[in-house]
C-alpha cells in the first residue's frame, strides 16, 4: 500500500504518477475524462491552491490529496478523488467547510480542507 501519498514530503506532485498509472489501466477509451488529461506545466501554476482557500459556491477540481493513506481512504471511499469537482456550499458554526460533491453534502474539518490541493476550473471547462 501507499506509494501514492508520499505527498507529505513533496506536496501536490503525485498527480503525474497517478495519471501514468491510470492510462495503463484504462487504455485509450476514456482519456477524455478530466482526470486523464495530461497535466501541463501551466496548469501547475496554482499548485498551492487548497480547498480551504476557495470562496463559497465556487466549484473547483480536486488535484490531489496531500495526506497519509489512512486519512485519505475514507475520503476516497466517499468519492473524493483527484479529478472530481468540489464546491464549498457553507461553513459550519465552528468555521469548518461543508462541501457538495457528487450530489452529496460532506462536512470536513478545515485541517482536512487544507490538505486538499485543488485548481480552478477554466471558463472553457466550465461550459463543458
Amino acid at each position: 500500500m501507499g506509494r501514492c501519498f508520499r505527498a507529505f514530503e513533496r506536496p501536490c506532485t503525485l498527480v503525474e504518477i497517478q495519471f501514468q498509472s491510470q492510462r495503463d489501466l484504462f487504455g485509450a477509451g476514456i482519456t477524455e475524462l478530466p482526470m486523464h488529461r495530461s497535466v501541463t506545466a501551466e496548469e501547475h501554476q496554482s499548485e498551492d491552491l487548497r480547498l480551504g482557500d476557495i470562496p463559497m459556491q465556487q466549484e473547483v477540481e480536486l488535484v490531489s490529496l496531500d495526506m497519509p493513506d489512512e486519512l485519505a481512504e475514507p475520503l476516497l471511499e466517499r468519492g473524493v478523488l483527484p479529478g472530481c469537482r468540489i464546491c464549498p456550499v457553507r461553513s459550519s458554526p465552528g468555521g469548518d467547510p461543508i462541501v457538495s460533491i457528487n450530489g452529496s453534502l460532506l462536512a470536513l474539518r478545515r485541517e482536512t480542507a487544507a490538505c486538499l490541493c485543488v485548481k480552478l476550473l477554466s471558463s472553457l471547462q466550465d461550459a463543458g
Partner: peptide, 8 residues
C-alpha cells in the same frame, strides 16, 4: 494500490 483502485 489504494488510490488507483478507488480512481478505477
Amino acid at each position: 494500490p489504494v488510490i488507483d483502485a478507488f480512481a478505477a
